[in-house]
Write a protein that binds this DNA or RNA. Sequence first.
DNA 1: GCCAACGTTGGC
DNA 2: GCCAACGTTGGC
Length: 155
Amino acid sequence: MNYWLMKSEPDEVSVDDALAAPESTVPWTGVRNYQARNFMRDGMRVGDGVLFYHSSCAEPGIVGIARVASTAYPDPTQFDRKSPYHDPASKREEPRWLLVDVQVLKKTRNLTLPELRADPELQDLVVLRKGNRLSITPVEPRHWKRILKLLDVRA
DNA sequence: GCCAACGTTGGC
DNA sequence: GCCAACGTTGGC
């Protein structure tokens, strides 16, 4: 089992939005970065652990525990002309962008970015690296355990 | 709104 | 294949 951190802008899809969805599950639309896409396509398995992260907001941080709920499949928004995620260069026979479904298991308190940065055991968490902009990053098991502990969530 | 850092594009 | 210009991300 692998672990991941996935960023979402709460203005678009917050952890509350995801919890309110059927089965607490949302399709992770809008990833338009090849490295992040490849993580979904090649790295993710159903059941993998996910840290639900709010970005581009007043208090960025980890706000929930989730799981990967599907294998990767084509992101329909790439074919939707009205979507901000429309990609005219992507063809239906050969979709460029994929997504996975993500199921929220538990909303947590906001474990904020400053708190994450302050923790000595999380110094090399990928998402904390300088200049990191990837919306999906792998999380090492020791980091996963540490974060669950900080959130007082049992594995 | 600013801007550092990074990814993508396209001319050559 | 190089690299300058441009676009995007995301914290502040």
